[in-house]
Structures are given as C-alpha cells and as structure tokens.
Simulated assay, not measured.
Amino acid sequence: MDSAALQFLKDLLHAPSPSGYERPVQDVVRRYAGTFADEVRTDWHGNVIVAVNPTGSPRIMLAGHCDQIGLLVKHIDDRGFLWVHAIGGWDPQVLIGQDVQVWTKTGPVAGVIARKPIHLQSPEDRKTVPEIKNLWVDIAVKDGEEARSLVAIGDPITVQLGYRELRNGLAAAPGMDNKVGAWTVISAAERVRRGNPKAAVFAVSTVQEEIGLRGVQTSAHQIDPQLGIVVDVTHATDCPTIDENQYGRVKLGKGPVLYRGPNVNPVVFERLIEQAGALEMPVQINGLATAASNDAAQLQLTRGGVATGLVCIPNRYMHSPVEVVSLEDLDHAAELIARFCLSVDSTSDFTP
C-alpha cells in the first residue's frame, strides 16, 4: 500500500459515519476519487458513485458500505446527561469506559460513557449485563440547559475515532467495519483506471448498510449492473473463544476471504480464484449457506438479478472500538478486484 492510499485509509477512519450521517466520510471519498475517476456523483440518498469507463460493457458495480455503528441522542436530562439509542448492533459492554464524540452542527463535543464505580456496586449490580438503555453520555456540563445549548436531539455519537498501527502489518480502529470496504472498492477503481478496462466500473461507497442494507438498493437500481462485487469485513477466527468448526478458519494476513454459496455467482467466484492464482495471491475460502448479512444480499436481487461476488476482509473484534485488520489483506483485495474487472469484456458470460 503506497503512502497516498494509506493516507486515504487514515482519513476515512478519522471521519465520522454513523448510518444516516455519512457526509464527512463521503467528503473524503469524493476528494480522493476526484483525482482519477471519469465521474464522481452523490445521489440524494448519500451514496457516492465513482465511475471509470462508464460507457463500457458490461456494467460492474463494486459496493463497499462506508457507514459505521454509532449512537443517537434520544434525551437530554435536567442534569445534562445524554441518553442514547443504538445505531446498528452494539455489545453494550464494550461501550463502558469509552471516550466518545457527539457530532453537532457546530462541531464535535467530547464526552465519556461510564457506569457506577465498582466500589459502589452491589453484588447484584456486578452480575448485571448492561443494556444500551442503561448507559448515559457525560459531556461535562453544569446542567440540562448548558447541554441543550451544545447538543440537539438526534445528534449522532461515535466512539473516539482514530487509527493505530500494531505489529506485523496490523492496524486497529473503530469503524474498520466497513470503511475498509469503501477503501477497497475505491482503490480497486483507481487501479482499473490505470489499465485498459473494457467494462464500465462503478465503485460505490454505499450508505446505511448497518440499519438494513439500504444504500446498496438505491444505488444499484440507478446503475443497473450485470455484475457486482461486494466488499465487507468478515469475522477473523484466529483469536480465543471463536469456534472454527462453526465459522471456518479465517486468519488475519492470509489474504481476502472469497465466499461460496447461494448468494454468490459460481462463475464470478471461479474468475476471482483464477485471477488470484495468476497474481500468486493468497486468498481464503469460506462458505455461506444463506443470504449474506451485508450488501451482497440486496445486490444479487437488483432488477433482473446481478451476478454477485463477495470479497471480505478478515476483522478481529467486529462491532467494537478496537477492530483489527491486516493492511496487506486490504491491498490484496483491491488488486484482486481490479484484475477481475480488467479481465471482463462484452463477451464474458457469467451464466451459472
């Protein structure tokens, strides 16, 4: 991964994007894609569509959702504490003790989420698993009036954003799910631009995946692709307590994961395997017996049906503030998808 691509990733991870509030991260996508794409546009839903060779054939859509899980201000009490609802699927236990930011019209407001100190907890308190409804955000105000002068009902909240490199080419950040997917599809489109594409490639940073696979539906309807590849994260199983017998063997740094199953067109899968072999690139294979819980489920069903592939980035500790991925896996995924797109022309047949 070159320095410009790495900076693009860091910029994505520092921009807030809870579902429904993706504008800051989409600004990053537009700025970067504008340096190479034939066309960059944003629809009224918020999807950013990046086109390379838009008059080519067939039409290929690359989808990576940019939204992350977050919180939303539901109530401000008279002491100035913020009570919240979840945007997407949180384990409330990972939120306790977190620094957070409330994203207001006038800028971010810092806060913390905590709970009653252990010294003051009863034996019953210590056994209780917290729920989102029991958590509050402390923004260090004097009272509710001051809080309401800073924060509005409906303002989104994220945990403290950032990026931290770890050993062995790994990196940790909140929002790896799925800003790395948006990074991958935009980076793949940039690499397609350097080649001689016959197909039209539309890389889409989709919105609102975490609350119902919404952005991919509207963007795919506009593009009307014949082929599609979805990039999302998948669970790395190379850490304690995860059963490989149930979830497969998926390791960080061993390559992107290519899925097989009814949600995946078998010819697309085989073409991806073929291209990985030509690149001598490591990939991991996993099975998916049902529709994916990501944008692939909806993309496959667009209009008359889309020949869909699913390429995933192994991710430890998904839906937490410390999601961990391999930078090499990201780079490999972008290169593999670019080579796939460059291998397709108007004579290609993806009939199962």
Rank of each mutant, 00 (worst) to 15 (best):
L82S: 03
G181F: 04
S326A: 04
D11N: 02
R303I: 00
V268W: 11
R164H: 09
S326Y: 05
A172D: 02
V137E: 11
S326E: 07
D67Y: 03
E146D: 14
N53K: 03
F340E: 00
L120W: 06
E145M: 07
I87C: 11
E210M: 09
D177G: 10
V267A: 10
Q226E: 10
R194H: 08
D78R: 13
T206S: 05
N134A: 13
P197L: 12
P92K: 02
A173E: 00
K254Q: 11
T302E: 02
Y247V: 10
V344H: 12
P117N: 12
T184K: 04
L166H: 06
I186H: 09
V129F: 08
S57T: 15
R316P: 06
G212N: 12
M281I: 06
R194N: 12
A152C: 11
T290H: 15
P225I: 05
Y259A: 12
E124W: 04
D177C: 03
G169T: 09
L258Y: 14
K74C: 00
E145V: 14
G111D: 02
A334S: 12
A140T: 07
K254E: 14
F8C: 00
V129S: 15
P24D: 14
R41H: 10
I273M: 12
G261T: 05
V311L: 11
S122T: 15
D77P: 13
L327A: 07
L252E: 03
I186T: 10
V112L: 13
A334Y: 11
L252F: 00
A291T: 15
Q222I: 11
P266K: 11
Y247Q: 13
V48I: 05
V109M: 02
G169F: 01
Q7G: 00
W44P: 13
L327G: 07
Q284D: 10
G89M: 09
A5M: 10
T218D: 08
T218R: 04
P108S: 07
P240K: 11
A63V: 05
G88D: 15
V159P: 08
G305W: 11
A182G: 10
G195I: 01
G34T: 03
Q298F: 08
Q226C: 00
G309K: 01
G287Q: 00
S3N: 06
